[in-house]
Amino acid sequence: MRRRLLSAALLAAVIMLAAACGGPAAPATGEPQEPGDMPEDPPAAGDSPSTGGEYGQRDPDTGVAALPPLDPPEPLRIAEDGSPSGAGFYIATERGYFAELGLEPEFVTFESSAYMFPAVAGGDVDVAGGVMTASLLNAVDRGLPLRIIADKGRNRPGASYFDLVRSTRVIDEIQTLEDIRGRRFAITSEGSVDHIFAELALRAGGLTEEEVEWVVIRDFGQMNPALANGSVDVAMHIEPLITAGEADGVLDRWIDATEFAPDFQVAVVLASPAFTQERQEVARRFMVAYLKGLRDYYAAFVEGVDTDEIIDIMTRHTPMKDPELWRRVNKVDLNPDGYVIADSVQFQVEWFKEKGLYAGDVTAADLIDHSLVDFAIEYLGGPVGQ
């Protein structure tokens, strides 16, 4: 693909991608669940659940226990903005996984987390994609019953979709992390995911935040021009704009984010008790279908199974419309078993406290509810693992 065409396609994708990485985060369920509150073990074949019809027999080849479709079908409202990390939602929709369980997905968007959080907490939206932010923690402190119920994005070692980049103007001058001292460092906002990564990169180089000049560029799409014209020297950047900048000779993809932020939970799926408890049969079916979508994504981009079909689905739901672009960029990593990284969630809580952005007592244990993931994994015949 010619450089200019690739660059245009990449730049067209940025707005939606930026929303995914700096926006809201965290799902909901009322009070932290005690062991006794967890869903019971999946019923044996033929047993009836607490609500809904009978569970079907297990497939003799796959061992998957069939969940009968809800009749009549139930609406499933998903807050998602076209981010590539929403792959599990898109694949489950396009491959009919939601429909075969009697769910009718509808995608909705919000201008900001200030509107999304109350909608999720009140049941106007069933599930939402988001990231860990101080605003999420503060919302939970204010009484909104938001909880994290599944993974929606992390960095893949050696192929992160977040990377530390440097301008090609300064490659000879910036050879080590210590060389960032006194340099202009671009992030999108204070307390953003890229700010956390940037601060961790400084720590890895033995530097503090006071030893660089921060430059806030709220739109990832403006970072490449800033790197080109000398406004900034280094940036915590994101795909697909990193690939665009490389093609244009503007930046050097320098250090993979997992070098200084391994096992980092970037994005999550959120919900509330209005969904997970009051609409439990819908919630269980949602998670089964969602994990099937995650596993198809993993199979496509890690194992090479049905890659063309999955890329086609992704081009229909994200701003990245060029199939060739999907083959070139580093892609978001998604756990095919759906679990989030609890230690990373707790680290981010503590980071927000350290920076004075959060002063409450919420912990990762308060936020994370894996009960639906546990249920879905059991029904899908066990974990896949990475």
Rank of each mutant, 00 (worst) to 15 (best):
I255W: 11
V266E: 05
T243W: 01
H237I: 07
S272E: 02
T276P: 00
T243E: 11
R253M: 05
P240I: 04
P240G: 02
A267N: 06
A271L: 05
P240Y: 11
T258L: 02
R253A: 08
L251N: 09
A247M: 10
E239C: 04
W254A: 09
G245A: 07
V268N: 08
R253F: 06
G245S: 01
L270I: 11
D263Q: 13
P273N: 14
L251H: 00
L270Q: 10
A274Y: 07
D263Y: 04
T243I: 00
A261Y: 02
D256N: 10
F260M: 07
P273M: 11
P273E: 13
I238S: 03
D256I: 03
D263G: 07
V269A: 11
T243Q: 01
L241F: 10
P240N: 12
D252W: 06
A267M: 14
T243K: 00
P240K: 00
A257C: 13
H237S: 14
L270A: 11
A271F: 04
E259C: 12
A257I: 09
L251M: 13
G249Y: 00
E239H: 03
V268C: 08
V250E: 04
I242C: 06
I238V: 14
W254L: 04
F260N: 13
D248Y: 01
L270K: 07
A261I: 08
L270P: 13
V268I: 12
H237Q: 08
Q265V: 08
T276R: 07
V266K: 02
A267T: 06
G249M: 08
E259W: 06
G245Y: 00
D256Q: 09
I238C: 07
D252G: 02
I238P: 02
D252V: 10
I238R: 02
V268W: 07
W254T: 04
H237D: 12
S272H: 05
G245I: 00
A247F: 09
I255V: 15
S272G: 09
F264G: 02
S272M: 05
P240D: 03
V250L: 09
R253Y: 02
V269P: 03
D263M: 13
V269I: 15
D252L: 13
F275E: 02
P240R: 01
A247W: 08
V250Q: 06
G249K: 13
V269W: 12
S272Q: 01
E246V: 12
F275S: 03
A271Q: 01
H237K: 06
H237F: 14
S272K: 05
A274C: 12
V250K: 00
L251T: 01
D256S: 06
Q265F: 00
L241V: 10
A271S: 15
A271H: 05
I238K: 06
E239D: 10
